[in-house]
């Protein structure tokens, strides 16, 4: 294959491009952290980074291994307590974008990070919500980043930890959920959005090299595709330069 970027890199750049300058972003660790920092270094110099641990305006000089890394505090604009971050920032409606992921997702973008199997007798016990439930409920919009696997993209969740569009586009409003719900799902195969009428996942673009069949094979329901299915814009030279040279990110094997 002749492309000069990895799957990891196109996931990062696809997520970074969903951000707009000067937005207030609730950052997670892993790909979301790299994506937000890439956006800040390229198109969105005025992004405000907030971590659920209470660090505000962080400029970590190393990639944080956890959401409470000390490097998020050194040189930050501020630090607040967790009751403040959840109430004054998130519940008050000040967070524009939150990032989510999960072990299972359904067609409405509902996420499970709690259990596989029955809650009271689980086959696999997962970590649980952490801040995910409130990010899903209260952020103005969310971006979901996860690998595209058939056992993850399932018809039915074993447990709804974090609400997406529940059973349809108007369900959030009926339940009084203040946040706007998921904007997109970014996987290793493509980018999916949600239909405005039904709140159902629709394949919007395929990453270079990925095929529609491949995406359907890795999705546990009959997936809708946009009538004008496009190819995901590949990472630009500048984005790759920042990722590799400034962040020292090695291109993960694709």
């Amino acid at each position: 294959m002749s492309r000069n970027f990895s799957t990891y890199e196109i996931m990062v750049t696809s997520a970074a491009r969903m951000l707009r300058d000067a937005e207030v972003v609730f950052v997670g660790i892993g790909i979301p952290n790299v994506a937000v920092n890439l956006a800040r270094r390229t198109r969105c110099p005025n992004l405000v980074l907030i971590y659920e641990s209470g660090a505000i305006g962080s400029q970590p000089e190393r990639l944080p291994t956890s959401i409470g890394d000390p490097a998020l505090v050194t040189g930050a604009l501020g630090v607040c307590s967790m009751p403040e971050v959840f109430q004054y920032y998130l519940q008050r409606g000040l967070i524009d974008v939150g990032f989510l992921g999960g072990a299972q997702i359904d067609r409405y973008g509902n996420l499970n990070t709690t259990v596989i199997g029955d809650y009271h007798k689980p086959t696999t016990r997962l970590p649980g919500s952490g801040g995910a439930c409130e990010i899903a409920a209260l952020a103005r919009r969310t971006l979901i980043v996860m690998p595209h696997k058939r056992r993850s993209f399932t018809e039915r969740l074993d447990f709804v930890t974090s609400p997406g569009y529940l059973g349809g586009a108007d369900a959030r409003q009926r339940l009084g959920l203040p946040g706007g719900g998921p904007q997109a799902v970014i996987t290793d195969l493509g980018v999916l959005k949600f239909s405005p009428d039904q709140g159902e996942m629709v394949l919007e673009s395929l990453h270079p090299g990925a095929t529609l069949d491949q995406v359907q094979e890795n999705t546990g329901w009959l997936l809708r595709a946009a009538s004008q299915l496009t190819q995901t814009e590949p990472p630009s030279d500048e984005e790759l330069r920042v990722l590799r040279e400034e962040f020292g990110q090695r291109a993960a094997a694709s």
Binding site: P83, Y119, S129, E134, P163, L175
Partner: peptide
């Protein structure tokens, strides 16, 4: 969730029997 447990301790600290939140609708928690 983090927010939920944070609120439980905050209610305990503030000496009130409960605290409200806009969280949790639609979740199985």
């Amino acid at each position: 969730s983090h927010f939920g447990l944070t609120l439980r301790l905050q209610a305990g600290a503030a000496g009130v029997p409960f605290l409200p939140t806009r969280n949790f609708a639609g979740s199985d928690l």
